[in-house]
């Protein structure tokens, strides 16, 4: 009888100790808590409005013509800066990225670019690229469109009529110029208001400035978990250029949005990691001419708008 009681007590104790709230702490806890808290003085932006369009699988965002262009799984949406849906048109397949200018909208599908007019009607699909192509970012100037191909680690240069006029991998004879190191399909580029092409070499945590024909002019890089650098194996995953030439960057893993000067120093924090749900995707970014930042939060399926604090 006593033995039975002891056994019962042991079992109950064991079961109780096995409850999730009674389990011992992980002695091998991996933590980045020291990097998730940010000096509030650096946070110079505030989230002003958010808007959502339901349970959509959003893929990319661009700002042009005082409009937001959103691509989601099989749809293109034209949205006002305040979040009012103005138009929606169906896409033939799942898009990966989008850019726009006054001349039209350009959508990157996996291995080809679709050219649409400003109202979202298909103009033409450009010649498909090879099967290993993974288009991750587009940037358009007056007559040139650049496409980042993460699959082949190259930047493609098109005329805006769809003629492929060249490509480059960032490599040169010199061993120092290693080309694009793209460990995962995050490969962003942008052209700033001075017409400078900037490419994010994510594997080097570097911003690289190239001439249009692919000659490296300059670069800066900073791999660090601290706020002044870029964390993880391949960051920043997304970026956009502010009107003054500085960069808005979004990192995956420990998600945070920051602004770096064109020379590389961190200037401000737009959204610290605590603004995001744990370790997740980096928001795609778009910037308005007035400097408002639009972040596509994939987890919450919403567009979050950040403005400089008054």
């Amino acid at each position: 009888m006593v033995l039975a009681a002891v056994i019962v007590v042991l079992i109950v104790t064991d079961v109780m100790n096995s409850r999730p709230d009674k389990r011992p702490d992980n002695p091998y806890e991996y933590t980045v808590d020291q990097f998730t808290s940010v000096d509030t003085a650096l946070v110079k932006y505030t989230e002003t409005i958010d808007f959502t369009f339901g349970d959509l699988d959003l893929r990319g965002i661009a700002f042009a013509n005082n409009r937001l262009y959103l691509v989601e799984d099989n749809y293109l949406m034209v949205v006002s800066p305040e979040g009012e849906k103005l138009a929606k048109s169906e896409l033939p397949e799942s898009p990966g990225c989008v850019t726009a200018s006054s001349d039209g909208i350009y959508i990157g599908f996996r291995n080809y670019i679709g050219q649409y007019d400003p109202d979202g009607r298909l103009v033409k699909n450009w010649e498909p690229l090879n099967d290993t192509t993974v288009l991750t970012s587009l940037a358009v100037t007056d007559s040139t469109l650049f496409a980042a191909d993460a699959g082949n680690r190259r930047v493609l240069r098109y005329k805006t009529n769809g003629i492929l006029s060249g490509s480059f991998t960032g490599k040169r004879d010199s061993a120092d110029l290693h080309g694009f190191i793209i460990p995962s399909p995050y490969f962003d580029l942008a052209v700033n208001s001075d017409g400078e092409l900037w490419v994010v070499n994510t594997g080097k945590h570097a911003f690289e400035n190239y001439t249009f024909d692919g000659q490296l002019r300059g670069f800066w890089e900073n791999a660090a978990m601290t706020i002044d650098g870029f964390s993880g194996c391949c960051n920043p995953a997304h970026m956009a250029v502010l009107p003054d030439g500085s960069f808005v960057t979004a990192e995956k893993g420990m998600v945070r949005i920051k602004i770096h000067k064109a020379s590389g120093e961190v200037l401000a924090v737009v959204a610290p990691p605590e603004e995001f749900k744990g370790e997740t995707y980096a928001p795609d970014l778009a910037v308005s001419p007035s400097g408002d930042i639009y972040a596509l939060d994939y987890e919450r399926k919403m567009i979050r708008v950040f403005q400089l604090k008054k």
């Binding site: 010199s174 120092d176 110029l177 400035n209 490296l216 002019r217 300059g218 670069f219 800066w220």
Partner: peptide
Amino acid sequence: RGYRVTIKRNH
């Protein structure tokens, strides 16, 4: 008159 030193171009 020169000397060998490695410089990676940056601007």
